[in-house]
Protein backbone atom coordinates (compact mmCIF):
# COMPACT_ATOMS: atom_id res chain seq x y z
CA UNK A 1 0.00 0.00 0.00
CA UNK A 2 2.81 2.40 0.88
CA UNK A 3 4.52 1.73 -2.45
CA UNK A 4 1.28 2.40 -4.22
CA UNK A 5 0.79 5.60 -2.26
CA UNK A 6 4.33 6.74 -3.00
CA UNK A 7 3.84 6.21 -6.70
CA UNK A 8 0.55 8.08 -6.68
CA UNK A 9 2.09 10.99 -4.77
CA UNK A 10 4.96 11.25 -7.24
CA UNK A 11 2.68 11.08 -10.26
CA UNK A 12 0.30 13.66 -8.79
CA UNK A 13 3.12 15.93 -7.60
CA UNK A 14 4.43 16.66 -11.08
CA UNK A 15 1.24 18.37 -12.25
CA UNK A 16 1.40 20.42 -9.06
CA UNK A 17 4.79 21.76 -10.08
CA UNK A 18 3.49 22.53 -13.56
CA UNK A 19 0.60 24.44 -12.00
CA UNK A 20 2.96 26.49 -9.80
CA UNK A 21 5.05 27.56 -12.78
CA UNK A 22 2.09 27.88 -15.13
CA UNK A 23 0.06 30.22 -12.96
CA UNK A 24 3.01 32.56 -12.61
CA UNK A 25 3.72 32.67 -16.34
CA UNK A 26 0.13 32.78 -17.57
CA UNK A 27 -0.92 35.48 -15.10
CA UNK A 28 1.82 37.78 -16.36
CA UNK A 29 0.99 37.15 -19.97
CA UNK A 30 -2.39 38.80 -19.43
CA UNK A 31 -0.84 42.24 -19.23
CA UNK A 32 0.27 45.01 -16.92
CA UNK A 33 -2.14 45.59 -14.05
CA UNK A 34 -1.16 49.25 -13.58
CA UNK A 35 -4.04 50.53 -15.70
CA UNK A 36 -6.52 48.73 -13.47
CA UNK A 37 -5.18 50.14 -10.24
CA UNK A 38 -4.25 53.68 -11.12
CA UNK A 39 -6.64 56.44 -12.09
CA UNK A 40 -7.04 56.76 -15.84
CA UNK A 41 -5.29 60.11 -15.70
CA UNK A 42 -2.27 58.79 -13.77
CA UNK A 43 0.99 60.23 -14.98
CA UNK A 44 3.96 58.23 -16.23
CA UNK A 45 5.76 58.86 -12.92
CA UNK A 46 2.84 57.33 -11.04
CA UNK A 47 2.86 54.28 -13.27
CA UNK A 48 6.57 53.83 -12.61
CA UNK A 49 6.01 54.22 -8.85
CA UNK A 50 3.31 51.56 -9.01
CA UNK A 51 5.57 49.16 -10.86
CA UNK A 52 8.38 49.67 -8.33
CA UNK A 53 6.06 49.27 -5.33
CA UNK A 54 4.75 45.98 -6.67
CA UNK A 55 8.05 44.63 -7.95
CA UNK A 56 6.80 44.68 -11.54
CA UNK A 57 9.85 46.66 -12.66
CA UNK A 58 12.10 43.67 -11.98
CA UNK A 59 13.12 41.28 -14.75
CA UNK A 60 10.74 38.35 -15.04
CA UNK A 61 13.29 35.84 -13.75
CA UNK A 62 13.83 37.92 -10.62
CA UNK A 63 10.08 38.04 -10.07
CA UNK A 64 9.95 34.29 -10.53
CA UNK A 65 12.78 33.68 -8.08
CA UNK A 66 10.97 35.87 -5.53
CA UNK A 67 7.79 33.92 -6.19
CA UNK A 68 9.47 30.56 -5.60
CA UNK A 69 11.27 31.89 -2.53
CA UNK A 70 7.93 33.13 -1.25
CA UNK A 71 6.29 29.75 -1.77
CA UNK A 72 9.02 28.05 0.23
CA UNK A 73 8.39 30.52 3.06
CA UNK A 74 4.61 30.24 2.50
CA UNK A 75 4.62 33.97 1.74
CA UNK A 76 2.65 34.80 -1.39
CA UNK A 77 3.04 38.54 -1.13
CA UNK A 78 0.39 41.21 -0.82
CA UNK A 79 -2.76 41.74 -2.79
CA UNK A 80 -2.47 44.74 -5.09
CA UNK A 81 -6.17 45.28 -4.68
CA UNK A 82 -6.64 45.15 -0.93
CA UNK A 83 -3.13 45.39 0.50
CA UNK A 84 -3.77 42.25 2.55
CA UNK A 85 -1.62 39.12 2.65
CA UNK A 86 -2.55 37.07 -0.41
CA UNK A 87 -2.09 33.80 1.47
CA UNK A 88 -4.37 34.95 4.26
CA UNK A 89 -7.06 35.95 1.75
CA UNK A 90 -6.92 32.54 0.04
CA UNK A 91 -6.90 30.66 3.34
CA UNK A 92 -9.84 32.69 4.57
CA UNK A 93 -11.94 31.93 1.51
CA UNK A 94 -11.04 28.29 1.07
CA UNK A 95 -12.82 26.75 4.09
CA UNK A 96 -16.11 28.29 2.92
CA UNK A 97 -15.68 26.55 -0.43
CA UNK A 98 -14.71 23.29 1.25
CA UNK A 99 -17.78 23.41 3.44
CA UNK A 100 -20.01 23.98 0.46
CA UNK A 101 -18.30 21.27 -1.60
CA UNK A 102 -18.28 18.78 1.29
CA UNK A 103 -21.93 19.25 2.16
CA UNK A 104 -22.97 19.16 -1.47
CA UNK A 105 -21.06 16.00 -2.26
CA UNK A 106 -22.11 14.19 0.92
CA UNK A 107 -25.73 14.92 0.09
CA UNK A 108 -25.33 14.06 -3.58
CA UNK A 109 -23.64 10.73 -2.81
CA UNK A 110 -26.20 9.65 -0.21
CA UNK A 111 -29.14 10.59 -2.44
CA UNK A 112 -27.57 9.07 -5.54
CA UNK A 113 -26.83 5.78 -3.79
CA UNK A 114 -30.39 5.52 -2.51
CA UNK A 115 -32.07 6.51 -5.78
CA UNK A 116 -29.57 4.70 -8.04
CA UNK A 117 -29.79 1.46 -6.04
CA UNK A 118 -33.56 1.55 -5.88
CA UNK A 119 -33.73 2.13 -9.65
CA UNK A 120 -31.34 -0.73 -10.35
CA UNK A 121 -33.47 -3.26 -8.47
CA UNK A 122 -35.96 -3.32 -11.32
CA UNK A 123 -34.36 -2.10 -14.55
CA UNK A 124 -36.86 -0.36 -16.84
CA UNK A 125 -39.46 -0.37 -14.11
CA UNK A 126 -41.44 2.73 -13.23
CA UNK A 127 -39.00 3.80 -10.52
CA UNK A 128 -36.06 3.31 -12.87
CA UNK A 129 -37.64 5.38 -15.60
CA UNK A 130 -38.62 8.10 -13.16
CA UNK A 131 -35.15 8.22 -11.63
CA UNK A 132 -33.57 8.39 -15.09
CA UNK A 133 -35.77 11.33 -15.99
CA UNK A 134 -35.05 12.99 -12.65
CA UNK A 135 -31.31 12.47 -12.80
CA UNK A 136 -30.94 13.59 -16.41
CA UNK A 137 -32.96 16.69 -15.70
CA UNK A 138 -30.90 17.43 -12.58
CA UNK A 139 -27.63 16.96 -14.44
CA UNK A 140 -28.73 19.22 -17.30
CA UNK A 141 -30.15 22.26 -15.50
CA UNK A 142 -27.77 25.24 -15.62
CA UNK A 143 -26.91 26.23 -12.06
CA UNK A 144 -27.25 30.00 -12.61
CA UNK A 145 -30.82 29.49 -13.83
CA UNK A 146 -31.65 27.19 -10.97
CA UNK A 147 -30.17 29.65 -8.48
CA UNK A 148 -32.18 32.59 -9.76
CA UNK A 149 -35.41 30.58 -9.98
CA UNK A 150 -34.75 29.18 -6.50
CA UNK A 151 -34.37 32.68 -5.10
CA UNK A 152 -37.53 33.83 -6.83
CA UNK A 153 -39.65 30.90 -5.67
CA UNK A 154 -38.32 30.04 -2.23
CA UNK A 155 -36.97 33.38 -1.01
CA UNK A 156 -39.20 35.99 -2.60
CA UNK A 157 -42.50 34.23 -3.26
CA UNK A 158 -42.62 31.77 -0.38
CA UNK A 159 -40.20 33.54 1.97
CA UNK A 160 -38.93 30.24 3.38
CA UNK A 161 -35.21 30.95 3.07
CA UNK A 162 -33.03 34.05 2.68
CA UNK A 163 -32.11 35.11 -0.85
CA UNK A 164 -28.40 34.83 -0.16
CA UNK A 165 -25.74 35.31 2.47
CA UNK A 166 -24.07 33.02 4.95
CA UNK A 167 -25.74 33.67 8.27
CA UNK A 168 -27.81 30.84 9.73
CA UNK A 169 -28.56 27.32 8.57
CA UNK A 170 -31.35 28.51 6.25
CA UNK A 171 -28.74 30.34 4.16
CA UNK A 172 -27.24 26.98 3.19
CA UNK A 173 -30.41 25.65 1.63
CA UNK A 174 -30.43 27.38 -1.75
CA UNK A 175 -26.67 27.23 -2.49
CA UNK A 176 -26.47 23.54 -1.57
CA UNK A 177 -29.71 22.67 -3.35
CA UNK A 178 -28.44 24.44 -6.47
CA UNK A 179 -25.05 22.80 -6.37
CA UNK A 180 -26.24 19.31 -5.51
CA UNK A 181 -28.29 18.86 -8.67
CA UNK A 182 -25.55 18.16 -11.15
CA UNK A 183 -23.49 15.73 -9.02
CA UNK A 184 -26.69 14.00 -7.94
CA UNK A 185 -27.92 13.57 -11.51
CA UNK A 186 -24.57 12.30 -12.73
CA UNK A 187 -24.01 9.95 -9.81
CA UNK A 188 -27.47 8.42 -9.99
CA UNK A 189 -26.72 7.35 -13.55
CA UNK A 190 -23.35 5.89 -12.56
CA UNK A 191 -24.60 4.11 -9.43
CA UNK A 192 -27.63 2.75 -11.26
CA UNK A 193 -25.49 1.34 -14.11
CA UNK A 194 -22.95 -0.21 -11.78
CA UNK A 195 -25.65 -1.66 -9.55
CA UNK A 196 -27.52 -3.23 -12.47
CA UNK A 197 -24.27 -4.86 -13.50
CA UNK A 198 -23.43 -6.00 -9.95
CA UNK A 199 -26.88 -7.34 -9.23
CA UNK A 200 -26.70 -9.64 -12.22
CA UNK A 201 -23.43 -11.24 -11.07
CA UNK A 202 -23.48 -14.92 -10.04
CA UNK A 203 -22.31 -14.18 -6.51
CA UNK A 204 -25.42 -12.10 -5.95
CA UNK A 205 -27.59 -14.99 -7.06
CA UNK A 206 -25.67 -17.20 -4.69
CA UNK A 207 -26.13 -14.72 -1.89
CA UNK A 208 -29.85 -14.64 -2.54
CA UNK A 209 -29.91 -18.44 -2.74
CA UNK A 210 -28.24 -18.57 0.67
CA UNK A 211 -31.09 -16.47 2.06
CA UNK A 212 -29.45 -13.05 2.38
CA UNK A 213 -31.97 -10.27 2.84
CA UNK A 214 -32.58 -7.75 0.05
CA UNK A 215 -31.00 -5.06 2.21
CA UNK A 216 -27.88 -7.16 2.73
CA UNK A 217 -27.64 -8.19 -0.91
CA UNK A 218 -27.86 -4.61 -2.09
CA UNK A 219 -26.17 -2.77 0.75
CA UNK A 220 -23.37 -5.15 1.63
CA UNK A 221 -22.60 -7.08 -1.55
CA UNK A 222 -23.71 -5.32 -4.73
CA UNK A 223 -23.05 -1.79 -3.56
CA UNK A 224 -19.47 -2.46 -2.59
CA UNK A 225 -18.60 -3.67 -6.06
CA UNK A 226 -20.56 -0.86 -7.64
CA UNK A 227 -18.84 1.75 -5.48
CA UNK A 228 -15.58 1.99 -7.45
CA UNK A 229 -16.96 3.72 -10.58
CA UNK A 230 -19.09 5.92 -8.33
CA UNK A 231 -16.00 6.94 -6.39
CA UNK A 232 -14.16 7.89 -9.56
CA UNK A 233 -16.99 10.07 -10.81
CA UNK A 234 -17.67 11.54 -7.35
CA UNK A 235 -13.98 12.37 -7.09
CA UNK A 236 -14.07 14.27 -10.37
CA UNK A 237 -17.18 16.14 -9.34
CA UNK A 238 -15.66 17.01 -5.96
CA UNK A 239 -12.52 18.33 -7.63
CA UNK A 240 -14.74 20.64 -9.69
CA UNK A 241 -16.44 21.96 -6.57
CA UNK A 242 -13.24 22.37 -4.59
CA UNK A 243 -11.95 24.49 -7.42
CA UNK A 244 -14.71 26.90 -6.53
CA UNK A 245 -18.37 26.96 -7.39
CA UNK A 246 -18.00 30.34 -9.04
CA UNK A 247 -21.56 30.86 -10.23
CA UNK A 248 -23.16 29.83 -6.96
CA UNK A 249 -20.61 31.74 -4.88
CA UNK A 250 -21.24 34.84 -6.98
CA UNK A 251 -25.02 34.69 -6.91
CA UNK A 252 -25.41 33.83 -3.25
CA UNK A 253 -22.59 36.02 -1.96
CA UNK A 254 -20.77 32.97 -0.63
CA UNK A 255 -17.25 34.08 0.37
CA UNK A 256 -15.48 31.17 -1.32
CA UNK A 257 -12.31 30.76 -3.28
CA UNK A 258 -13.94 30.48 -6.71
CA UNK A 259 -15.16 34.04 -6.68
CA UNK A 260 -11.91 35.26 -5.16
CA UNK A 261 -10.01 33.58 -7.96
CA UNK A 262 -12.17 35.06 -10.70
CA UNK A 263 -11.94 38.53 -9.16
CA UNK A 264 -8.16 38.14 -8.94
CA UNK A 265 -7.97 37.21 -12.60
CA UNK A 266 -10.12 40.14 -13.68
CA UNK A 267 -8.14 42.52 -11.46
CA UNK A 268 -4.76 41.04 -12.43
CA UNK A 269 -4.12 40.57 -8.72
CA UNK A 270 -1.22 38.19 -9.32
CA UNK A 271 -0.33 37.41 -5.71
CA UNK A 272 -3.88 36.43 -4.75
CA UNK A 273 -4.37 34.47 -7.94
CA UNK A 274 -1.18 32.53 -7.33
CA UNK A 275 -2.11 31.80 -3.72
CA UNK A 276 -5.61 30.64 -4.70
CA UNK A 277 -4.43 28.42 -7.53
CA UNK A 278 -1.69 26.89 -5.42
CA UNK A 279 -4.02 26.24 -2.52
CA UNK A 280 -6.68 24.60 -4.68
CA UNK A 281 -4.02 22.64 -6.56
CA UNK A 282 -2.67 21.27 -3.27
CA UNK A 283 -6.20 20.46 -2.13
CA UNK A 284 -6.93 18.65 -5.38
CA UNK A 285 -3.60 16.85 -5.06
CA UNK A 286 -4.60 15.67 -1.57
CA UNK A 287 -8.08 14.82 -2.77
CA UNK A 288 -6.70 12.71 -5.60
CA UNK A 289 -4.54 10.81 -3.14
CA UNK A 290 -7.56 10.22 -0.92
CA UNK A 291 -9.56 9.02 -3.91
CA UNK A 292 -6.74 6.67 -4.86
CA UNK A 293 -6.61 5.32 -1.31
CA UNK A 294 -10.37 4.89 -1.32
CA UNK A 295 -10.17 3.13 -4.65
CA UNK A 296 -7.45 0.81 -3.41
CA UNK A 297 -9.45 0.01 -0.30
CA UNK A 298 -12.55 -0.73 -2.34
CA UNK A 299 -10.81 -2.74 -5.01
CA UNK A 300 -7.73 -4.72 -3.95
CA UNK A 301 -6.83 -5.37 -7.58
CA UNK A 302 -5.47 -1.87 -7.96
CA UNK A 303 -3.12 -2.34 -5.01
CA UNK A 304 0.38 -3.28 -6.13
CA UNK A 305 0.88 -5.15 -2.84
CA UNK A 306 -2.16 -7.25 -3.60
CA UNK A 307 -0.89 -7.79 -7.11
CA UNK A 308 2.52 -8.72 -5.77
CA UNK A 309 0.90 -11.15 -3.36
CA UNK A 310 -1.04 -12.64 -6.22
CA UNK A 311 2.09 -12.94 -8.30
CA UNK A 312 4.01 -14.49 -5.39
CA UNK A 313 1.23 -16.95 -4.75
CA UNK A 314 1.05 -17.80 -8.45
CA UNK A 315 4.78 -18.45 -8.46
CA UNK A 316 4.49 -20.72 -5.41
CA UNK A 317 1.61 -22.55 -7.03
CA UNK A 318 3.56 -22.85 -10.24
CA UNK A 319 6.51 -24.32 -8.39
CA UNK A 320 4.13 -26.62 -6.53
CA UNK A 321 2.73 -27.82 -9.82
CA UNK A 322 6.21 -28.51 -11.06
CA UNK A 323 7.41 -30.17 -7.88
CA UNK A 324 4.46 -31.98 -6.46
CA UNK A 325 0.83 -32.90 -6.87
CA UNK A 326 -1.31 -30.27 -8.58
CA UNK A 327 -2.89 -27.73 -6.26
CA UNK A 328 -6.40 -26.57 -7.10
CA UNK A 329 -6.32 -23.15 -8.82
CA UNK A 330 -8.97 -20.51 -8.48
CA UNK A 331 -9.98 -18.34 -11.39
CA UNK A 332 -9.15 -14.70 -10.68
CA UNK A 333 -12.14 -12.89 -9.42
CA UNK A 334 -12.62 -9.77 -7.43
CA UNK A 335 -11.74 -10.03 -3.83
CA UNK A 336 -14.91 -8.37 -2.78
CA UNK A 337 -17.09 -10.69 -4.84
CA UNK A 338 -15.41 -13.66 -3.29
CA UNK A 339 -15.78 -12.17 0.14
CA UNK A 340 -19.41 -11.44 -0.55
CA UNK A 341 -20.11 -15.09 -1.04
CA UNK A 342 -18.21 -15.94 2.12
CA UNK A 343 -20.07 -13.33 4.13
CA UNK A 344 -23.43 -14.36 2.82
Amino acid sequence: MLTYLRKRIISSGLPLLVVIVGVFALARMTGNPAALYLPLNATEAMREDFAVRNGLDQPIWVQMAQYFGGILRLDFGESMRTGESAGAMALRAFPATLQLAGTTMALAIVLAVIVGSAAALKPNGILDRFSSFLSMTAASIPDFWLAIVGIWVFAITLGWVPTSGVVGMAAWVLPVATLVMRPFGTLVQVVRGAMVSSLSEPYIKLARAKGATQYRVVGAHALRNAAAPGLTVAGDLTVGLVNGAVVVETIFGWPGIGKLMIDSILQRDFAVLQACVLLTAVAIFVLNILIDIGYALLDPRVRPSAGARKRRKARVEHRGQQNGPKAPTTPTTTGSAATAVLDA
Binding site: R92, F94, P95, A96, L98, Q99, G102, T103, M105, A106, V110, V166, V167, G168, A171, W172, R224, W254, P255, L290, I293, G294, L297, L298, P300, S336, T339
Partner: peptide, 27 residues
Protein backbone atom coordinates in the same frame (compact mmCIF):
# COMPACT_ATOMS: atom_id res chain seq x y z
CA UNK B 1 -10.44 -3.01 3.88
CA UNK B 2 -14.17 -2.56 4.04
CA UNK B 3 -14.04 -1.48 7.64
CA UNK B 4 -11.37 1.06 6.78
CA UNK B 5 -13.20 2.37 3.75
CA UNK B 6 -16.43 2.60 5.69
CA UNK B 7 -14.60 4.40 8.46
CA UNK B 8 -13.15 6.84 5.94
CA UNK B 9 -16.56 7.41 4.40
CA UNK B 10 -18.19 7.81 7.76
CA UNK B 11 -15.45 10.19 8.84
CA UNK B 12 -15.90 12.27 5.73
CA UNK B 13 -19.62 12.41 6.22
CA UNK B 14 -19.32 13.25 9.88
CA UNK B 15 -16.79 15.98 9.30
CA UNK B 16 -18.93 17.41 6.54
CA UNK B 17 -21.97 17.33 8.74
CA UNK B 18 -19.97 18.98 11.48
CA UNK B 19 -18.81 21.62 9.06
CA UNK B 20 -22.29 22.23 7.80
CA UNK B 21 -23.62 22.33 11.29
CA UNK B 22 -21.48 25.34 12.02
CA UNK B 23 -21.78 28.62 10.25
CA UNK B 24 -19.70 29.35 7.18
CA UNK B 25 -15.96 29.43 7.76
CA UNK B 26 -14.75 32.67 9.32
CA UNK B 27 -18.26 33.86 9.87
Amino acid sequence: ARRISMAVAAGALLSTTALAGCSVANS
